[in-house]
């Protein structure tokens, strides 16, 4: 049971990171990233491939974060001057293409065979048998750091600018700030966090292949943000926790409901995710959390 708890909590930490990244991009910035799973996948592959090449895992992680940030910025550049619909579809296209390249360019990515034997960072630090716990602590530390940074960012002048860009880009443009610059930076920072989440995914499973990554990862992240309340980092972390436990817990239902195969159960679970997403948007549009704002931010935002 402890083993199971540790495993689930690690997944919570990774999901929370993906949720926090999306919360910055969509919750605070209003930028819809439907290709989230692609950036996450890219992070996993950069970290995984570099680690098996013998690079220290933490260095690989750093490269993954920078790489995903750069590509995020690029994909934002293509489309941010257009409406959000275009950004959604460009990121989705990017993710799909990435999955294709990773699946077929075996010389680089080992294709459908997947990358195995990915070493975790700092494994030597922990006593034998405590590796999973140690990794969990590392993942939680990552969540804490990212959370702190994002909270500070949300209260900073840049955070106000990001929210203002979401609420009324015209006003921001009129004030002489570059909307494009804000959006590209938001996308890049979010990308770095997604790279981090993807890297942790690769380290945790120590094996990655293209089938692990799909649009459902995007859906989970959106769910986490919608449940947590757009803009509320605390809410997103809490809802990632709740969601993963619900999803993992529902696996046990298979013993309780006779006649349901694993694939039917998965279908029901995902069906509920889809319906839940719509229902939350309709009935609980602000989620269960609150957007953090400084007193000053509240004053300025009332102008917009």
């Amino acid at each position: 049971m402890t083993v199971y708890l540790i495993a689930t909590l690690t997944l919570v930490a990774i999901a929370a990171l993906a949720g926090l990244a999306l919360n910055l991009q969509w919750g605070m910035g209003g930028l819809v990233n439907f290709g989230l799973f692609g950036f996450y996948m890219l992070g996993a592959y950069i970290a995984g491939l570099l680690t098996v090449q013998g690079l220290p895992p933490l260095v690989a992680l750093g490269v993954a974060m920078l790489g995903v940030a750069a590509l995020s910025a690029l994909s934002a550049l293509i489309s941010v001057r257009l409406s959000e619909d275009y950004l959604a579809i460009v990121t989705l296209g990017f993710a799909e293409c990435l999955r294709l390249v990773i699946s077929y360019e075996g010389w680089l990515t080992r294709g459908m065979l997947g990358v195995s034997g990915i070493e975790r960072p700092l494994q030597a630090w922990w006593p034998r048998g405590w590796g999973d716990t140690g990794f969990l602590l590392l993942a939680l530390l990552a969540v804490l750091i990212v959370y702190t940074v994002l909270q500070a960012l949300a209260r900073s002048p840049f955070g106000r600018l990001v929210r203002a860009t979401r609420d009324d880009p015209g006003v921001v443009e009129a004030l002489g700030k570059s909307v494009l610059g804000v959006r590209v930076r938001v996308f890049a920072i979010g990308g770095a966090i997604l790279g981090l989440a993807g890297s942790l995914h690769a380290f945790y499973y120590s094996y990655i292949d293209p089938t692990q990554f799909g649009p459902i990862i995007t859906a989970y992240a959106f769910m986490a943000v919608v449940v947590g309340g757009r803009g509320s980092n605390r809410g997103v972390v809490a809802s990632a926790f709740t969601l993963i436990f619900l999803l993992e817990g529902s696996r046990f239902l298979i013993d309780l409901v006779p006649g349901l195969g694993a694939s039917e159960l998965a279908a029901i679970r995902l069906f509920l995710v889809g319906v839940g997403l719509v229902a939350l948007l309709i009935f609980k549009p602000d989620g269960f959390g609150r957007e953090p704002r400084s007193a000053l931010a509240d004053k300025t935002s009332s102008r917009f």
Partner: peptide, 15 residues
Amino acid sequence: TLLVASMGVAIALEN
């Protein structure tokens, strides 16, 4: 918001 909702609809229908 509608775009995100349509993602939920897509997942629900597919499943």
